[in-house]
Design a protein around this nucleic acid. Structure first.
Lengths: 352, 352
DNA sequence: GCCTATAAATGGAACGTTCCAATAAATCAA
DNA sequence: TTGATTTATTGGAACGTTCCATTTATAGGC
């Protein structure tokens, strides 16, 4: 069915009795060729089992049609959702994005970026790895490759960013907690090497200040941005002299960890200690108790990022507006019932 | 710093005062060039901001260095783990795998495969989308591209498969349930269009038969392989005349759904109804109650798949042995305590 | 000092496309 | 018929690399 060596447009040309140029035209769907000829050529293509060589084509063509998606943690469902959103719009544009994972490792990110460049990508959507140095994208920028950052930004970069309104989200969540009567609050997880951390923490602080929480009652406990980190944060919070009664968590993973640690100690999340998450991953709704969280619409942000990228490519520019996505707090059960009419026995006591 | 048009080896050659061939040799790390010359060339490369054009190179070279990873559901943490395992070994081989998502859609899969082929991939690791037609990979096979299936297989294909021992895993889990005293069992979730379904269901059935469960006491409820599916399965199970007391779930997502539905009804997972999952995703350990599940070591399977692929590429063959990975049951809390000495108040009552 | 062996560097052809300019064929105006 | 116009098709050069066969420089043997 297929000869040993891979077929080229010359083979097709011979098979169909036309010239290579004609075949090329057919391949590109040009309207210049006579319909009957096109049919003949297409049949030949089928017969010889031809596969288009995009590398060769890119040698002549201005731009390739691959877009790279560089993601810092594939394992986080949050980013998977982002990816799904992007793919939705790229698919309808007839392009297949290639995803590469950096596993939160700047060195790996360097390799990935290099590889993608060598492949001749038309554009890059990147959620930069933690600890990315400011110069990491210089190479790409001078090469004129359109880049957009998704979800995360770099300290002093001019690359357009698509991200949720972290400050506002944190403010909203904190205000909710305060509205529930909490007066001693803590921020769980994350660390200052992440711009997002400052944004969320900033919202938390602003809410505390403007809503009248005394500075000595607002606590901050850094930690890993994972379940494990959340568990650790809660442990240290509860061993304090005057423990807080509510936590805003850096993200849902941290929140899940906190919930878990609470349960382990025999405390009732929501009733004995309020926790709110950030990101509102699908799981949040299904947790026990269901997690109150700041929804950021990651799939929507993914779509937006893809659109911006498409626009940049087509207008061959490397600049674009930032886009800060709306957020909203979805209230579930992890901050306790609205009414203060609970009457349950005290938890079995703190055991550590 | 960088001129407008992108630099080629000719530009480097001029800059360094050598020939293009010399530059090419340096690029390939050939030992033929004098060290001082190499240094000079490398400096020039840096100066002009050169980026290697792999497309052009592949025009001459036998094989490219891209490997594609085609995954049916990026959203499932299970597959993310698989991807992570693969990346680990590819990274140490100096190659960057490109991941593409098919979202369980055969049409999308077709596009993805086509795009990857055109890109000239050296090999493909694929977890085929549900409903993939038997001929979907013919094109690739005749083109001689090495392929390995991971986690899933196609009904009558000769492509090598790396997958867990689903049959044995299901057997183990079922035996555990029976050992706990359960006599009326159900299999939750999945549908017959998946080979994996038959394998797992087969193990379940065999265990029931050989361990003396009457045929009329083994139930099967098909459903989506998601939390939602699990919820639905449990609902229909409990409305039966003689409800089962234990379920083996198609995967952990289904199991989480079942656990959730149980809680919603005020039943205590483990005590009132036993559930065991399959895959042992990281989350299983952290669930409430912690989920007993069949561990398949997906990262390990990913590594194995990557190794097999590397071997195939280097020995330029398209055949390889299947590899069935060991599984083991990790017992946690979702099947109840070992001792039957529990004494807790009945749950707060069924509210739905 | 000459010949040979080795080491280092080079020019040219090839890879599979696209695109432009040019040709061939068909149609039309006179 | 002839020339002009439109419609289809075509050959050739170019894209940025690799690889082979040469050439040039360096060293070694006698």
């Amino acid at each position: 069915m297929a000869s040993r060596a891979k077929a080229t447009i010359f083979d097709i040309a011979r098979e169909a009795g036309v010239s290579k140029s004609t075949v090329s035209l057919v391949l590109q769907g040009s309207g210049l060729i006579r319909p009957e000829t096109a049919v003949k050529v297409r049949k030949a293509i089928e017969d010889v089992g031809y596969v288009y060589n995009r590398g060769a084509a890119n040698l002549r063509k201005a731009h390739s049609n691959v877009i790279g998606m560089v993601i810092n943690d594939l394992t986080n469902p949050f980013f998977a959702e982002l990816a799904v959103g992007m793919e939705r719009v790229f698919q309808s544009a007839g392009i297949v994005p290639f995803i590469a994972n950096t596993a939160e490792n700047p060195v790996r990110q360097e390799e990935v970026l290099k590889s993608l460049m060598e492949q001749g990508v038309a554009g890059l959507i990147v959620s930069p790895a933690r600890g990315t140095t400011p110069g990491a994208f210089r190479r790409l920028e001078t090469a004129g490759v359109p880049i957009v950052f998704a979800m995360r930004r770099l300290p002093e970069s001019r690359i357009p960013v698509i991200a949720p309104d972290n400050h506002r989200g944190a403010y909203l969540a904190t205000a909710h907690l305060i509205g529930k009567g909490h007066r001693r609050l803590v921020f769980f997880g994350g660390s200052p090497d992440l711009v997002v951390y400052h944004e969320r923490l900033g919202g938390f602080r602003e809410a505390c200040e403007t809503l009248g929480i005394a500075a000595r009652d607002v606590l901050i406990i850094e930690g890993e941005t994972s379940r494990k980190g959340g568990i650790a944060c809660l442990e240290t919070a509860l061993t304090m002299a005057e423990p807080p009664t509510a936590a805003l968590c850096f993200n849902d993973a941290v929140a899940f960890g906190a919930l878990l640690a609470l349960r382990k100690r025999g405390l009732e999340p929501g009733a004995d200690f309020a926790v709110v998450g950030f990101d509102d991953v699908v799981e949040a709704e299904h947790y026990m108790p269901a997690l109150t969280s700041v929804a950021v619409d990651s799939a929507g942000l993914g779509e937006r990022a893809a659109h911006v990228m498409l626009k940049m490519i087509q207008s061959r520019t490397t600049r674009a507006e930032d886009h800060i996505g709306a957020v909203n707090l979805v209230v579930r059960e992890s901050c306790g019932p609205d009414r203060r009419t609970r009457n349950r026995p005290a938890g079995p006591g703190v055991t550590v």
